[in-house]
């Protein structure tokens, strides 16, 4: 293979496979662990895999996976293109409402409804992007916030109660029996595991592609990227739409898990949740915000159980401590520790 003047030796298939295994061994071990986790939990608690603690913890993990994809989608915007959006809940909550309304009021088949969620997400994120990307920084944040708040108000409006359930939310979303998380929790667990893996690898592939390089260039210095011939609007819009699609799918699966879609999913708190998970995990790392989502979801649950009504206050303190201890997020701290362990950088300054 010839790559910009450097000829590389062809490797046999076996060698390539071994190299691949060696390179991704930690990820592969993690994947095996996540696949076997329900059964491991079943063994630990001595209960059947579809009942008791194993079942409850599967539910918690499903929630973690969905929030992880939501955080990842936010990191694509904030970490890779430098867009600070305060309206990300519009996509998450929007996805939940679209699938809920289609399943409940129009008896749409699940796959068609999921396809509709994707189309809705591409359309609405394209629209929000087209409107908000004309301004920068805090103004962009305000435009996205305004649009998301408009959707939030719409979701609570009594005029559409028959479709949205207004302030009560859309309750009792019918989930096909074969996927009902109440009946087949394990199946739903694997669906969301497949979803998080697919979302991560798709996002990773995109940020490592030429498009991802342009995003990084735009984030670092927009003027230089533009002078190379790149339209910042087009590339940022693409990021907006891809990110919106992932968030909407996460929201739709969240609606299937809880069988409801409530206005709180569209509120600014849901956007702030994505922001916090991204900051705690590490901005611009993809995997960091996913771990951030895991940490905040699990810690939130444990704090709730341990401290009762005080949990929210103590959880806030916990968040402050995490941010102070890891100013570059969990992934940033991990990367620094690895670099120190390896010794001086191979690419040190001349």
């Amino acid at each position: 293979m010839e790559r910009i003047g450097i000829r590389q030796e062809a490797l046999s298939r076996g060698s390539v496979f071994r190299l691949w295994i060696r390179r991704y061994r930690i990820w592969l071990a993690g994947l095996v662990l996540l696949i076997g986790l329900p059964f491991l939990l079943s063994g630990i608690f001595g209960e059947p895999v579809e009942s008791g603690w194993p079942r409850f913890l599967q539910g918690l993990l499903i929630r973690v996976y969905l929030m992880a994809v939501y955080a990842l989608s936010y990191d694509l915007l904030m970490g890779y293109t430098g867009i600070l959006s305060f309206g990300h809940a519009l996509f998450f909550g929007g996805g939940a409402y679209v699938i809920g309304i289609l399943l409940k009021h129009f008896q749409t088949p699940l796959l068609v409804a999921l396809l509709a969620v994707i189309l809705f997400a591409l359309g609405i994120s394209g629209l929000v992007g087209a409107l908000s990307l004309r301004v920068r920084g805090v103004y962009l944040a305000m435009v996205t916030l305004a649009l998301a708040q408009a959707a939030f108000i719409l979701s609570e409006a009594a005029d559409f109660r028959q479709y949205t359930g207004a302030e009560d939310g859309l309750q009792g979303i019918p989930v096909p029996a074969w996927l009902d998380p109440a009946e087949h929790r394990l199946r739903f667990y694997y669906l969301t595991l497949f979803f998080i893996l697919g979302a991560y690898f798709l996002a990773r592939r995109l940020v490592n592609s030429p498009t991802g390089r342009v995003w990084a260039a735009l984030r670092e210095n927009e003027e230089r990227a533009v002078a190379l011939g790149y339209s910042p609007f087009a590339f940022r819009l693409l990021a907006f739409m891809f990110s919106g699609m992932l968030a909407a799918l996460a929201g739709a699966l969240n609606a299937l898990l809880n069988k409801n879609a409530t206005p709180s999913l569209l509120s600014v708190n849901t956007t702030i949740q994505a922001l916090l998970m991204t900051l705690v995990g590490g901005v611009g790392t993809l995997s960091g915000p996913m771990f951030g989502a895991g940490l905040l979801e699990l810690a939130g649950y444990l704090f709730n159980r341990a401290f009762g009504p005080l949990w929210f206050l103590l959880f806030g303190l916990f968040y402050v401590i995490v941010v102070l201890a890891f100013p570059h997020g969990l992934a940033g701290a991990w990367q620094q520790a690895r670099a120190l362990h390896r010794g001086p950088s191979r690419g040190s300054a001349p």
Binding site: I4, A216, A217, E220, E223, R224, A227
Partner: peptide
């Protein structure tokens, strides 16, 4: 442009490919 307008966070190869 002046001031060596490169993308410092990207590798040399990525700068060129861009």
């Amino acid at each position: 442009p002046e001031h060596r307008a490169i993308f410092r966070g990207l590798t040399v190869e990525e700068n060129l490919k861009l």
